[in-house]
């Protein structure tokens, strides 16, 4: 458990672990009756054959995931899905010249970790901002500070670090240290990525976002994940999940994310009755 509502687990999946790259995701099913839940990969170890995932309890299925005990398994694990982060295509020379600032929100902090780890290992300069409602909900504090250059923390209630939103902290960090970054990456709730993108735009900083859209199969079959990027419909599962933040229609993406909210609340309620 990383916090009362967030849990981390290592899953033995040798084929997935040996193919996984930063930025990709998995789909898991807890049991025969379960949904297919897309989860971003938080770490992977090809030698051990394991991948790490982090889940926040939000609906009936994520609660079931978090209820799994050590030694138990998923009914299904499939991946790695989606395209790896763009920087995995770049040369070490290019990366040595790059200065990244990551903006991680809540449970979105976990998938930031393998990206930071990869970039540092290839010589890039990397700072990280982690934001959460309150200090208790900050995850990956130690892990992240071990791999990044500077870790900045902010909480909505001021219980740890900067008091305020990630956007406020991003603007402060950039203002204090001068505009030294070449690339921003935001991973977290859709609304946070929307505002992080607006801030980055204001600062003239390119920004990549990782979209956690609805998905069924995760291989391009259903189109539930469609998002409008630069005026064109794209499938986040096979053409993403990462896109240029400037081009994403976040309002549409947020609306589409809530498509099954009514049904999900009913399902969650049913579970409590059982």
């Amino acid at each position: 458990m990383l916090s009362p509502a967030i849990c981390r687990m290592k899953v033995l999946a040798p084929r997935v672990a040996s193919s996984a790259r930063p930025g990709q995701f998995l789909i898991v099913r807890v049991n025969e009756r379960g949904e297919r839940i897309p989860l971003t990969i938080s770490d992977f170890d090809a030698e051990e054959g394991s991948v790490t995932i982090v889940t926040q309890k939000i609906g009936a299925s994520t609660k079931e995931i978090c209820a799994l005990e050590e030694g138990e398994g998923f009914e299904d694990v499939v991946g790695p899905l989606g395209l790896p982060s763009d920087f995995t295509e770049k040369s070490d020379e290019e990366l040595k010249e790059s200065r990244y600032i990551f903006i991680a929100g809540g449970v979105g902090t976990a998938p930031v970790y393998p990206q930071v780890k990869y970039l540092k290992a290839h010589g890039a300069y990397v700072d990280v901002i982690i934001g959460a409602k309150t200090s208790d909900l900050i995850i990956y504090r130690e892990e992240m500070s071990a791999v990044c250059d500077h870790l900045y923390i902010c909480t909505d209630d001021g219980s740890e670090g900067f008091k305020g939103m990630v956007t406020g902290l991003l603007e402060k960090v950039v203002a204090e240290d001068g505009n030294k970054y070449t690339q921003a990456v935001a991973i977290g709730p859709m609304i946070m990525m929307k505002f992080a993108t607006l801030s980055a735009k204001k600062l003239g900083l390119p920004i990549v976002v990782s979209l956690n859209t609805l998905m069924v199969d995760g291989t391009g079959m259903c189109g539930a994940c469609r998002v409008t990027v630069a005026g064109k419909t794209r499938f986040a599962c096979v053409e993403g999940p990462e896109f240029d933040g400037y081009d994403v229609d976040f309002d549409e993406a947020m609306r589409r994310q809530g498509m099954y909210r009514k049904e999900e609340i009913e399902e969650d309620h049913k579970c409590k009755i059982r």
Binding site: E35, G223, R256, G258, Y260
Partner: peptide, 29 residues
């Protein structure tokens, strides 16, 4: 076409057939 309530037949059918969404004892909405 990206309004809520527009689906590909693939999504609609996959939810029902593969994921048994029409059954009450399955979680897929």
């Amino acid at each position: 076409e990206n309004l809520n309530g527009v689906f590909s037949a693939n999504e609609f059918l996959t939810r029902n057939n593969l994921m048994d969404a029409y059954r009450d004892d399955y979680l897929t909405p």
